[in-house]
């Protein structure tokens, strides 16, 4: 009897909480759809620059696949490679054959090598015998023994910091409301923006610590590849954390309890994983790609990767820092406006 009463009560609570109900059914569909879109996408199409003194080889390669782009000068090809316009450069200058890979992305590396090998195989024997011999493989960044973790690690650092800061700051700002302390604060002359800035600063101190610890752990304990500056990585993760912090406190205004805050994870956090660079954005459906521009994790993940694998400096990543700063400011302003719901002044 008591169990029945309990069951009825729970059912009633659920029915009244339409949001939680919707979340139970719609969120899994959303995630499944996203995963499906991401993984059923086309194969990666590498772009390979070709430099050769053998006109016949050049012609054949050009005909065989649009992946091959012919360069007259070796220096131009390598310039484009370093600017990530190409994934690899194939140099056929008898008697040696060299492949130079951009190296950052294992998927692109593999796709490039496979494309080159496949194409060379289709050539008539008398041409290829000279070429096939022993293509030497060079890496612009990284190396053949770069592990998968070296590649995904930078994104995971960014992601985990984003995820936890988002959740914790969101829930604690929410609790300010549910315990009545927000109302109590609004009875004081404290201004709304002061409250938002106070939260950013208070949590900011912990996010600095968090960023430093996670980044150091990844580099010194997990021995992740690190080509650039430790301080720049910490700076980026900190910017990412502040973006997550401001987004978390903003969204907490639209949740009435902790459970509803957690429901934002599949809506806001998980989709960002797909666009953070962990998966190759170029292979996604075309209409899906622009979504990456509105996801903070895109900018953070990209910058962390470029610093850690390619050794990028401040000049290469300050744009990303500015974008993250812009996101943070936008979320803070929106939060100040959202607090208007609780007090007009």
């Amino acid at each position: 009897m008591r169990i029945k009463a309990l069951v009825i009560r729970i059912i009633r609570q659920f029915v009244r909480d339409k949001r939680t109900l919707a979340m139970m059914f719609i969120a899994p569909l959303l995630i499944l759809t996203l995963v499906n879109l991401v993984f059923s996408s086309n194969d990666y199409e590498p772009k390979i620059g070709v430099v050769s003194d053998q006109q016949m080889v050049v012609d054949k390669l050009k005909l065989s696949d649009k992946a091959f782009i012919v360069y007259q000068k070796r220096s131009e090809a390598h310039q484009d490679l370093s600017e990530e316009k190409l994934d690899a450069v194939l140099e056929v200058e008898l008697p040696s054959t060299t492949i130079t890979l951009e190296g950052s992305n294992p998927t692109a590396n593999k796709a490039s090598i496979m494309m080159i090998e496949k194409t060379l195989k289709t050539m008539p024997d008398q041409d290829t015998e000279k070429i096939k011999l022993n293509p030497e493989i060079h890496y612009l960044h990284g190396s053949a023994d770069m592990e998968t973790f070296d590649y995904i690690g930078p994104f995971l650092i960014g992601f985990f910091i984003f995820f936890f800061v988002f959740l914790i700051s969101g829930v604690s700002f929410l609790r300010e409301r549910t315990t009545g302390t927000l109302e109590r604060l609004l009875a004081t002359p404290m201004r709304r923006w002061e409250m938002v800035v106070g939260y950013v600063l208070g949590f900011g101190i912990f996010t600095i610590l968090q960023s430093a610890i996670i980044v150091s752990f990844a580099i010194y304990v997990l021995d992740i590849m690190m080509a650039g500056s430790l301080w720049l990585v910490i700076l980026i993760t900190l910017m990412l954390a502040i973006t997550a912090l401001t987004l978390g406190t903003l969204l907490s205004a639209f949740a009435t309890n902790e459970l509803q805050m957690i429901q934002f994870i599949p809506l806001v956090v998980v989709p960002q994983v797909f666009f953070s660079g962990l998966f190759t954005i170029e292979t996604m459906a075309d209409w899906l790609q622009p979504l990456s521009y509105i996801m903070p994790l895109t900018y953070g993940g990209e910058a962390i990767r470029d610093i850690m694998i390619q050794g990028d400096g401040w000049g290469d990543i300050y744009g990303n820092v500015l974008v993250l700063l812009g996101f943070s400011l936008l979320f803070m302003i929106l939060n100040v406006l959202a607090l208007k719901k609780h007090r007009r002044l």
Binding site: T179, G180, T181, E183, R184, L185, A187, T188, R191, L345
Partner: peptide, 21 residues
């Protein structure tokens, strides 16, 4: 009201104990 300046002259005790546990 509402005016922030005047609010400095008011002491408010809410119905729920708005304290940090």
């Amino acid at each position: 009201m509402p005016k922030l300046n005047t609010m400095t002259q008011i002491g408010f005790m809410a119905q729920s104990d708005a304290l940090y546990g």
